[in-house]
Write a protein that binds this DNA or RNA. Sequence first.
DNA 1: AATGAATGAGGCTTCATTCAT
DNA 2: GATGAATGAAGCCTCATTCAT
Lengths: 191, 191, 191, 191
Amino acid sequence: MSGAQREKHEAILDSAFEIFGQKGFYETKISDITEHAGIAKGTMYLYFKSKEELFIAVTRRDWETFLRNLSYRVKQADGLLPKLRQVAEHHLEYYYERKSHGKIFFHAPNNDSELMKMMHGFLTRYMAIVKDVLEEAGMPDPDFYAKAFIGMLDRLKMDILFEGEFTREELELRVDQTVRLFLRGSERELN
Amino acid sequence: MSGAQREKHEAILDSAFEIFGQKGFYETKISDITEHAGIAKGTMYLYFKSKEELFIAVTRRDWETFLRNLSYRVKQADGLLPKLRQVAEHHLEYYYERKSHGKIFFHAPNNDSELMKMMHGFLTRYMAIVKDVLEEAGMPDPDFYAKAFIGMLDRLKMDILFEGEFTREELELRVDQTVRLFLRGSERELN
Amino acid sequence: MSGAQREKHEAILDSAFEIFGQKGFYETKISDITEHAGIAKGTMYLYFKSKEELFIAVTRRDWETFLRNLSYRVKQADGLLPKLRQVAEHHLEYYYERKSHGKIFFHAPNNDSELMKMMHGFLTRYMAIVKDVLEEAGMPDPDFYAKAFIGMLDRLKMDILFEGEFTREELELRVDQTVRLFLRGSERELN
Amino acid sequence: MSGAQREKHEAILDSAFEIFGQKGFYETKISDITEHAGIAKGTMYLYFKSKEELFIAVTRRDWETFLRNLSYRVKQADGLLPKLRQVAEHHLEYYYERKSHGKIFFHAPNNDSELMKMMHGFLTRYMAIVKDVLEEAGMPDPDFYAKAFIGMLDRLKMDILFEGEFTREELELRVDQTVRLFLRGSERELN
DNA sequence: AATGAATGAGGCTTCATTCAT
DNA sequence: GATGAATGAAGCCTCATTCAT
């Protein structure tokens, strides 16, 4: 693939990410994407075999970036608390930057086992990263704790995606709160 | 609406819940539902205005039951810990009973603002119930803690929905762990 | 299938025969056929699974009629010569009546093994009928002679289909000539 | 046109013959042909105006060869019987060598009057050659006899094209039988 | 009220052809 | 001349919805 082709490949992925993100898989027409990309409908089929394949490619690229950045940030930080803060910050920032692309997280095509496998793989890799952080710190049952931590973070995405006025400051606050809750529990907050 | 009509209304909702749950909104055909209900395609339109309306009605009925049962269980329990245990158990049991209906949680119709509003309303009511429990116990920032608690629980639904071998015993174990983590944090588990 | 449905089924077959016959399989659009039948595009799919299936059904109906009529005519006639005359007349009349449907004989869909099998089956049945006539008369190697006789007839279809001015009288003349040639050869015509 | 160009021209025709023969006109993509020829898609359009033109050129070349060879063989032979044997042998050999290219005979493009005219012209020339042979021998109504003879031969092509196990020996046998039937008729074979 | 045949808008995809390099 | 990326018209088919019975 030449340089120009790689660029167009990326441009289609960009447009697809944009439109799938706004409308979800089923409500998105190929023509929506190609018009947004400024190309003809047929051109998309030179780069991707089908609408499903395109969606998968978009999702894969997004997740790979997510995981790559997460790994990097976790590696840079030192100690359990800083590492967990990085995870939390990264997770929430990810959704923060995708405020207007919420649909992509909810409307993947059904019955597509390739996609399902891929998603499962990504979730596993995400969990593994967090699990490693916990394990390194000597946490018992790190599987469970990793899931719970990610769960707390993921629930907050709803606020970010659906509350228009969510600010960057609130984001930082949530990071603090979440990490604190995770480590120290809520009980001691009681009078 | 006569009694016979109410019965048919319910029968359609039952079939719709079944099929939407298995295939998701977009991959479900009206004819799938009406065949499963043993009625003619046109009959559905005597009871519901459109496919979207039917989906909304299904979702509403499911959520109302969810919230009603939750309220009841929380009211029965006494004290923070028992109440949180009820919330956790109820949440996980809900998914446990819907193991084979996972698609309904991921594939709602897009661009349907009525549904979006409704979903938001339900989430708010769910949160309010948990928030009340926390507030009653004197927890500060109960909004945040409620979200975090629900988030932890909701993350675990992935395991339930996608791991075939998830057992009832594991469910109880998760309830314990989650409540404990929520109250006491993970820090003290470290050596 | 109700009476009205059976009628529509036939009406679609009639239109399909008409249009496929004029344009061939590939140049025919489903909308050509449904417009000719005075129905909506989707309606055709209530009666036939696909364009291929429709074509197969059209072909099958035409061939079945062909073979049924042939059998009947051959049964009515008595003796080798009269029977062969019936075969020849029937064969040529068939094309004569389909002067304006020539394309259907040349443009079936490729790569459709069901159709291929069916065509082969019909040809075999056709040949078997002629073979029986010859065998009954004590002709040796009836397989070969049956093929040759049908071949002579079939070649003449080109004249019928592509020469606009082919008349009914010429048809009768060809019947005579063909049967005579088949039985007595051309040699004795030489001086 | 330079020598190199003429070679490419021929190479495209060769590939087109191969692929059209295997898949028929409609199921063949230009890219199938150009890939088989090892050239770019656009290159084909430097040599032929369209897919139809290419098909016509392929057909013309094939038929011209057919007729040239036939003329030569007929000229070499001496007497009615040997000449007819040459025609029969040549006809059957033609299909025998094209066993794997059957589709080309059944799937020409429709609605292309140029092709139709050409085909008609070739058939006429073929018939004229046979007719001359018969006329020369003093056969009356040579038009009809020529058609009948070719018809017998052409029917046998079905066996050759569709019966995998058709051998060279069977071919010779068919030649004998066909010529004999044509000259002496089948009647005298009866007891 | 119930039916289910009919409708037809609309989307995905293919592929012959063009044209800038 | 040769390339092959890009184009976009065109067709098959689906399925939510309607309506005559």
